[in-house]
Simulated scan of single mutants.
Amino acid sequence: MVRRKKGGSVPGQLSLFDFVEEIQQEQEKSTEINPGSLNISLQLRNTLSEGLKYSSLSRFEVACRMSELVGVEITKSQLDSWTAESKEHHRFPAEYLPAFCHVTGFKQPLKMMAKLVQCYLLESEEALLAELGKIDQVRKDLSRREKTVRDLIGRMKADM
């Protein structure tokens, strides 16, 4: 993909829109879903383990803070079971994922899941930039419509 320089951007750095376009092209290449391809058990375990390593909190602290947020007791032992490859029948409950991401500050599990269903997870400023892009696109569309209507009015006046 050609990396375009936008006003004020770092040379060679993709704009948000170029980034989204690049990802869409990648997704178009990999839209086929094969049987079993969405079994993310091992991938989720590894990503959760990464998040626990990423966090400055101990597993005990993560479990305690998650418990407070979800209103259900979560233990260090449960976290260990949910992340251990050898405990394949112990599954991390999806309803705990927001609490996990909030406590650890690690959003990769959500990003991984979003990518699997061809969605994007935009954070704070990225989301606002995307909204500005949508506003800009609406503005351009309205400007084109306005020009069309003005041209039609001009032609109608000329025909009179």
Rank of each mutant, 00 (worst) to 15 (best):
K53W: 01
Q137A: 13
I135S: 05
F106P: 06
F17M: 15
S56L: 10
L152D: 11
E146Y: 04
P35L: 06
L122F: 10
L42R: 03
K115P: 00
G7A: 13
V103L: 12
M156W: 07
Q118E: 05
L44E: 07
R59N: 10
L57N: 04
M112F: 14
L52P: 01
K147S: 13
I74Y: 02
L128V: 01
M112K: 07
R145S: 09
P98F: 07
C119K: 15
G8N: 10
A99I: 14
Y54K: 03
G133Y: 05
K5M: 02
S77M: 08
F92W: 14
Y54A: 07
L69W: 02
S55I: 07
R59T: 09
L128M: 11
E146S: 08
Q137F: 06
L14H: 04
K115S: 13
T75F: 03
L97Q: 06
A158H: 15
Q108N: 02
P11N: 13
S9A: 14
W82L: 03
K5F: 00
R3N: 06
E61H: 01
R139H: 06
I153S: 01
D151F: 05
V103Y: 06
P35A: 05
A84C: 09
V117G: 09
L42C: 01
S124K: 15
K111F: 00
K5Y: 00
K111Q: 10
K140V: 06
F60P: 01
M112Q: 11
Q137N: 11
L42T: 13
S15V: 10
S9Y: 11
D141G: 07
S124C: 07
K147W: 08
D159S: 06
R155D: 12
Q25I: 05
E61S: 05
S15G: 13
L142A: 08
Q108Y: 00
K115C: 02
C64I: 03
L132K: 13
N39H: 09
T83D: 05
K147A: 14
S9N: 10
S55A: 14
Q25Y: 06
F19R: 10
A94I: 15
E146H: 10
E68T: 00
V70H: 02
K87T: 02
S55Q: 11
E50T: 00
I40L: 13
M1I: 02
Q13K: 09
E88V: 13
T75K: 06
E32Y: 03
E88Y: 14
